[in-house]
Simulated scan of single mutants.
Amino acid sequence: MKREISIFFTALMYYTRIPCPGWVVYQESYLHQATRYFPFIGWLIGFFAGLLFLAASYLFGTALGIILSMAGSILLTGAFHEDGFADACDGFGGGWTKERILEIMKDSRVGTYGVVGLILILAVKFFSLQQMVSNSMQPLVLLLLFMTAHALSRFVASTFLFTHTYVRLSEDSKVKPVAQGGEKHNFFIGAALAFIPLLTLLYFTGKPLLITVLLPLYLLKLYLGRYFTKWIGGYTGDSLGATQQVCEVLIYLTFIVLWKFT
C-alpha cells in the first residue's frame, strides 16, 4: 500500500505543482508505474479548473472566469503540457530531419512556431470554453465537462507509451525524462480512470451520444502516431504534451457539436 501511495504521489509531483509529503522520494521505476494515475491527475486539474471558473464567472463574468480558469490550470501544472506543445511546434515546424527536430525540441528557448502555436491553441481553447458554457449548463455538468476533457486528453497522450517507441536525441540524454515502456495493467487502470468522468457525464446529462467523442480522439491518436513516427521514429515527452493539448481542445470542440445536435 505504501508503495502504491508513493507511486501516486510521484505522478502528482511530476505532472503538477501540488505539494507532496516530504517523505516522497523520486524514483524512476515509480515514474514508469505512475502512468496509470495520469488520467486521475486530469480529474484533479479539471475539477480545480471547473471550480475556479464557476467561482470567477460568478464574481467577474464568463470571459474573465474562463481566463482565470485557464491560468489556474496552467499554474497548477507549471505549464507542463503547454511547454511540450510549444517545443513540438518549434521542432516539427522548423526541423526537416529527425536529428534537427529533436535538437530544436531539446532547446529550452521558444521560437516563432511555438509562440504562434501557443497563441492559437489558447485562443481556440478560450472560445471553445466560452461557447460550451453559453449552453446554460448546470454547475455539476460543467465540472464534469472539465474533468472529462482533462482526464481523457491525458489518457490519449499516455497511450503512446504502450503503442510507440520513446525517442531521444542521444542515448545518454537526460532532458525531460518521461515514463517509458508501459505495462498492460497500467493501460487498463488508466483507461478506467479516464472513462469514469465521461460515463458520469453521460448519466447526469442524459446524452448518451456524447460518448462518440472517443471516435475523433481515436482518429487523432492514429494521425499523430503516424506523424510522429514518420518524422522522428516515435514519441518524446514534448510529443505527449502536444497530444494532451490538442486532444483537450478537440474534446471541447466535439462537445460543442454534439451538444447542438443531441
Results as ranks from 00 to 15, higher is better:
residue 33 Q to L: 15
residue 34 A to H: 02
residue 35 T to A: 12
residue 35 T to Q: 11
residue 36 R to V: 09
residue 37 Y to A: 02
residue 38 F to V: 08
residue 38 F to I: 12
residue 39 P to R: 03
residue 39 P to T: 07
residue 40 F to R: 05
residue 40 F to C: 11
residue 42 G to C: 04
residue 42 G to H: 01
residue 42 G to Y: 00
residue 43 W to Y: 02
residue 43 W to A: 02
residue 43 W to K: 00
residue 44 L to T: 14
residue 44 L to N: 10
residue 45 I to R: 00
residue 48 F to I: 15
residue 52 L to W: 10
residue 53 F to N: 10
residue 53 F to T: 06
residue 54 L to Q: 03
residue 54 L to K: 03
residue 56 A to Q: 11
residue 57 S to D: 13
residue 57 S to L: 04
residue 57 S to W: 02
residue 57 S to F: 03
residue 61 G to R: 03
residue 62 T to P: 12
residue 63 A to V: 09
residue 63 A to C: 10
residue 65 G to E: 02
residue 66 I to P: 01
residue 67 I to G: 08
residue 68 L to W: 09
residue 69 S to K: 00
residue 69 S to A: 15
residue 69 S to Q: 02
residue 69 S to W: 00
residue 69 S to E: 05
residue 71 A to Y: 04
residue 71 A to N: 08
residue 71 A to H: 05
residue 72 G to I: 05
residue 73 S to I: 09
residue 73 S to K: 09
residue 75 L to F: 13
residue 75 L to S: 12
residue 76 L to V: 08
residue 78 G to A: 06
residue 79 A to S: 13
residue 79 A to D: 11
residue 80 F to D: 04
residue 80 F to Q: 09
residue 81 H to N: 10
residue 82 E to G: 15
residue 83 D to L: 09
residue 85 F to M: 12
residue 86 A to D: 10
residue 86 A to P: 05
residue 86 A to H: 11
residue 86 A to I: 08
residue 89 C to E: 08
residue 90 D to P: 08
residue 90 D to K: 04
residue 91 G to E: 01
residue 91 G to D: 03
residue 92 F to T: 05
residue 92 F to L: 11
residue 93 G to M: 00
residue 95 G to S: 07
residue 95 G to Y: 00
residue 96 W to I: 14
residue 97 T to V: 06
residue 97 T to Y: 04
residue 98 K to C: 07
